[in-house]
Write a protein that binds this DNA or RNA. Structure first.
Lengths: 338, 338
DNA sequence: CATTCTCATGGAATCGTTTCCATGACGGAA
DNA sequence: TTCCGTCATGGAAACGATTCCATGAGAATG
């Protein structure tokens, strides 16, 4: 009675609803109903079918289901750079909610390249029910185009007409600048992230306006990359700017800069105060520990997945969702030394 | 001529080979051949078909392909805890190779729970061509059972009869113990990880044997979890053990312990030398920077994926692959203070 | 010139599920 | 008792791609 087509090379073929149907003596369609639409089938047959299914270790084949329904039960998560520790919490939060909804996450990285991001998004989109675009470097129009095909939620960046989840940098920034101002800082710098990043622009504008409001001078310093190396390399420019405090685009850059300061004998926070962004793993490890603005990436991940699942169900709800940020005080900030 | 069944709610239906067939006036089977088996179709028709496909923005539907072929073009990656920074590099390495082979990665986390790991692995297995089991907490027999259904590669742990990729802790440990011995340490401790972890046992046995060889005493100290908290909580037990150096199961635990030492006024490395494991992001940030044993998780990830892809193709090759480790010298190790 | 072989292509079955439609049994209302 | 609505179930057509088999047109061979 052996299977005559498969060479039985690896593993026996998994059980199908036909196997269950044969055993219980019903039609495959009845099996499908029994398993997916409780109540549509008489209690006794449903019982028998469930038992047989359990016996055979039956699992629905997601590919086969996807064909007629168009639903794959998976979501795509596309980030700009997997190496960045910020994404850990995001992924974790997303994964939690996804699991709760029996949904799998497919995972990809665009290596900070818009072209790669676009092609990956397109390929990914066929295989998933919806896409999470994190810190996208694409243009609004491109994202809107993708969103026309399948539901998309943008994370860490708003896109007109597309649902999004992003931190509201305002509160954390206000706290930061109030603190710096109160301590006596008057000349500060913003150490920038990638130019293509919407969030970078947002942070700069916010910091700028808040600083001006408080009568402080502020300059923007470019960095080569939003990484520790980028921060290290920016050291010279920061020194040249003659400021007493630096707000960094993210913690990685700030940590790189702290390292460079240490190496060059610049005392943090006496000679230079430093504030990062994100509160990533490790921000509290550095010497001195890094003050930072925290936005809950875990929350962002879970909210974004919820929103996306909603959009897939047809909830045209949620335009833009903003999550609050807060200042986290650690040792890298103090009154200016002189 | 509009599509009469779909409510056109979201996005137009993607193009299929039938659309291409209709446009070019050939049979769908010819389209399939033209696209997948170059040379099997006359050059001119292939040309026309490719053009039509490009025009329509055709992408092959992976679900539809998976049904007859049984190949989904995806791999599953199951780790014990996504929060652990060690997995950054692993995921990144895995992702790189996967991309090169036009393969997607599906991603899941078992939250250090063997039951959850088992059920997740089973669910995942249906949707993928092969599974990467990282730091599995399952028993050998369970893994072998899973491996009977579809190809599996175990990472960070060998399993009899199942291909695996794991670090060879020996070289890094030898360097560590030679260094400690040379500096004059005679009483050391091993700060353990999860009991269910094969790797934990491996590290303890190796450290133990090497220490004994060198005439040093060594004790095993339990930790509550392989996290920074676990390391912090182990502080009292470490102090009680009256040792001059500690080898930790991983960097997280070591970093937790460093923090606790700082807080309790125990000077590292003067009063206590510390060596971690993994060289995770942040290991060089702590004060003092953490000496550690590095195994290239990025390599492990890419090797594991290669091996898995090979196994899927039928290469029954690779049994067990071990990657070397090396000691990374930083500031947390010195001669004992007294 | 007849025969065989090759090659491009058409036709149809198949993968596992879902879902629409059909059918027959049964119960209750008239 | 008859008729109709309800309900459980069977039957069959999708979904999109692959692949085996069939077919017919030429080319090659004697």
């Amino acid at each position: 009675m052996g299977d005559k087509r498969r060479p039985a090379a690896k593993g026996k073929t998994p059980a199908t609803i036909y196997d269950i149907a044969r055993i219980t003596g019903v039609n495959p369609s009845t099996v499908s109903r029994a398993l997916n639409q409780p109540g549509r089938v008489s209690a006794s047959t449903e019982q028998r079918i469930r038992e047989a299914a359990a016996d055979l270790g039956y699992r629905t084949n997601p590919m086969a289901r996807a064909l007629p329904t168009g639903k794959t039960g998976t979501l795509g998560l596309l980030v700009s750079d997997l190496t960045n520790p910020v994404y850990f919490d995001l992924v974790r939060g997303a994964e939690r909610i996804a699991r709760e909804h029996d949904t799998m996450l497919i995972f990809a990285d665009s290596q900070e390249s818009p072209e790669l991001e676009r092609s990956t998004a397109e390929r990914l989109q066929i295989a998933v029910d919806g896409l999470l675009l994190v810190a996208s470097r694409l243009e609004d129009a491109q994202i809107q185009e993708l969103a026309a095909a399948k539901p998309i939620v943008a994370v860490n960046r708003p896109v007109p007409g597309v649902p999004s989840v992003a931190p509201d940098v305002q509160p954390g920034m206000v706290e930061s600048l109030d603190l710096l101002h109160g301590l006596g800082h008057r000349r500060i710098a913003y150490l920038a992230g990638p130019e293509a990043s919407w969030m970078n622009g947002m942070k700069w504008v916010t910091a700028h306006d808040l600083a001006v409001d408080r009568g402080m001078s502020i300059v923007e310093i470019q960095s080569s990359a939003p990484t520790r190396e980028g921060g290290t390399e920016a050291f010279a420019d920061v020194m040249a700017a003659d400021v007493t405090a630096v707000l960094a685009y993210n913690d990685l850059i700030a940590l790189g800069l702290i390292g460079a300061c240490q190496q060059h004998g610049v005392a943090v926070p006496r000679d230079l105060s430093l504030i990062g962004f994100d509160d990533i793993f490790g921000a509290d490890l550095s010497a001195p520990a890094l003050s930072t603005v925290r936005c809950s990436w875990g929350d962002m991940g879970s909210r974004a997945v919820s929103k996306l699942l909603g959009a897939i169900e047809g909830d045209a709800s949620g335009a833009e969702l903003n999550l609050p940020t807060e200042f986290v005080s650690r040792a890298s900030v103090a009154a200016p030394g002189r």
